[in-house]
Design a protein around this nucleic acid. Structure first.
Lengths: 241, 241
DNA sequence: GCCGATTTGTCCGTATGTATC
DNA sequence: CGATACATACGGACAAATCGG
C-alpha cells in the first residue's frame, strides 16, 4: 500500500511544475479537486502544497487558489544550497569530480575549537582537509571535523571517495539537519597553494554543522570556494507574526 | 478566541529554547504532554514543532521524542538570511542606519532585463540605487527594480527611508516569498566609489525576487555587500526521498 | 527475545472560519 | 447572497520506532 502519500503527491506536483505542465503564474487545481485526483484527504493534499511552498514553487492565496511562482533559473556556475553534498551536486550536473586528501589527523577538541564548532571540549575528532576538483579544476578547499565516536573507522581512502556515502551506506546513519553560514573572506596562503584563484583575493566561505537522525551533531564543515564557481540558493517565506 | 493557536505555541516554545529553559540536546515534553499543556489537539502541537524543525531549532526522533539542537551563534558581523530587510536587521541589532539614494529612474523592461530579473518585457519599473550605511560606514550598494503597477507612488524620499515599510504599511501589501541567490563577484568601479572596500577586490552579491501575497513578483533586488560585514545564514532539512 | 507502554509518523473525516468571486 | 477556495483546529485510527521489564 502506498503509505507516504503526501510525498508522492509532492513529487508529482513538483515534476509537473518543472516540466511546465503547470506554468508560471498558473493556478493549481483546487485542493478539493486534488482530493479526487489523488484519492486522499484534504490534509494530505495541503501537506504536499505546503512543501512546495517551502521550496518557493507555489504560493497559496486565501480564497483564490494556489499559484505557481516557480521559474527555472539559468546558472552556469556550481550550485550549492539545501543539504546536498559536493558529489551529489556534481552528479546532478553530470560533471566529473576528483577529491585529494591533503591532511588527515585525529585530534581532541579544545576550548577554542569548541567555541568555533559547537563540539564539546574533550571530544575525539577526525580532522580532514581535502581539495575538490570539478572537471579538473580545483574549486573547493574543504575542512571537516567528524565526531570519531559516530563516524568510526574513517580512513584517508574513504575521505578520497565520499565520506557522506560511507556514513549513509556503511554506517547507516541518516543526515538530517544542516545549519550553514556564508561569508566572504580574504585569501590565505593555503588557499593560494591549493586553488587556482587568478586575481581574486577573496573567496566564499561556507561553514556549518550537520546533525544525524539522533539529533547529534557529528560534523563541522568549513568550505572555501573559488568565487567564479560558487552560487548559493535559498528561498524564504514570511512567518505569521 | 485565540485562533492561530499553533503560532502561539510555536512562539512560546521558541522563546523557551532561546532562553535555555529547554537546553541544547534536551528533549521537549512529549506531544501528548503538550496537548495537555496548551489545551489543543496533537495536530496543532505537531505543526508548531514542525516550524521549529524548519528553523533548525529542534529535531524529531521517531519513537523517542523531540530534541533541541539550537545553539546561539556568536557573530559580530551583519546578519542576513530569511526575508528580513536591511532596516529590520539593523533595528534588531540596535544599530543606526542611513540610506542615500544615488539613482532613481522609471524604466521599461526589455528582453535582456527580463531574462535577468524575471519581469516581463514591457513591464513599467522603478529603478532605484541606494547606498546603505550602518553606523556611518557604507556597507551595501543596493539596486532595486519595482513593478510600478504594484508599488505606485514610490518617490526618492520614500526610498531614503524604507520602501518595505511603505509597501507594507501604506499600500497594505504583504511580502510573502523571497528567492535569493548568493555569489561572490569582482569589484566594479561603481562599488569602489560608493563603498569603502579597503583591499578587497571582491564582494558578496545577493540577488533575489520578492513576491507579494497575490503571488506576483513585484521586486527584483541586487545587493552588493562589503565582505567584512556580511554573513548569510540558512538551515536545511533533508527531504524524504 | 518478547511484550506492552510510550512516542512520533501518516492519514482520514469533519467542523468552522474567512477571503474571494 | 451563495458558492467556492483556502486556513485553522479537532479527534480518532493505525503504523512504526523505541524502551523498559
Amino acid at each position: 500500500m502506498p503509505r507516504i502519500k503526501f510525498n508522492e503527491i509532492y513529487k508529482d506536483l513538483k515534476a509537473k511544475i518543472e516540466t511546465m505542465e503547470y506554468e508560471y503564474q498558473q493556478m493549481l487545481p483546487s485542493e478539493n479537486t486534488m482530493v479526487d485526483i489523488y484519492h486522499c484527504s484534504r490534509n494530505t493534499v495541503r501537506r504536499a502544497i505546503g512543501m512546495l511552498a517551502d521550496d518557493g514553487y507555489v504560493q497559496s492565496l486565501h480564497g483564490k487558489g494556489v499559484r505557481v511562482i516557480y521559474q527555472p533559473v539559468a546558472t552556469n556556475s556550481f550550485l550549492m544550497g539545501g543539504i546536498e553534498s559536493f558529489q551529489e551536486s556534481a552528479r546532478r550536473n553530470h560533471r566529473e569530480t576528483i577529491t585529494k586528501v591533503v591532511q588527515f589527523d585525529e585530534i581532541t577538541c579544545d576550548e577554542r575549537l569548541s567555541r568555533r564548532t559547537g563540539f564539546q571540549p574533550g571530544d575525539e575528532l577526525y580532522y580532514v582537509r581535502r581539495v575538490r576538483y570539478l572537471d579538473g579544476k580545483p574549486l573547493i578547499l574543504d575542512t571537516n571535523f567528524f565526531l570519531k565516536s559516530l563516524v568510526p573507522g574513517l580512513t584517508e581512502t574513504i575521505a578520497e571517495t565520499s565520506i557522506y556515502e560511507y556514513i549513509e551506506n556503511e554506517l547507516e546513519m541518516l543526515i538530517v539537519t544542516s545549519r550553514r553560514t556564508m561569508t566572504v573572506e580574504h585569501v590565505t596562503p593555503a588557499d593560494e597553494s591549493y586553488l587556482e584563484l587568478g586575481d581574486y583575493n577573496c573567496l566564499a566561505v561556507v561553514t556549518g554543522q550537520t546533525f544525524n537522525d539522533d539529533g547529534i551533531m557529528f560534523e563541522y564543515t568549513h568550505s572555501r570556494h573559488r568565487p567564479d564557481y560558487f552560487s548559493f540558493q535559498t528561498t524564504a517565506t514570511r512567518k505569521k507574526n
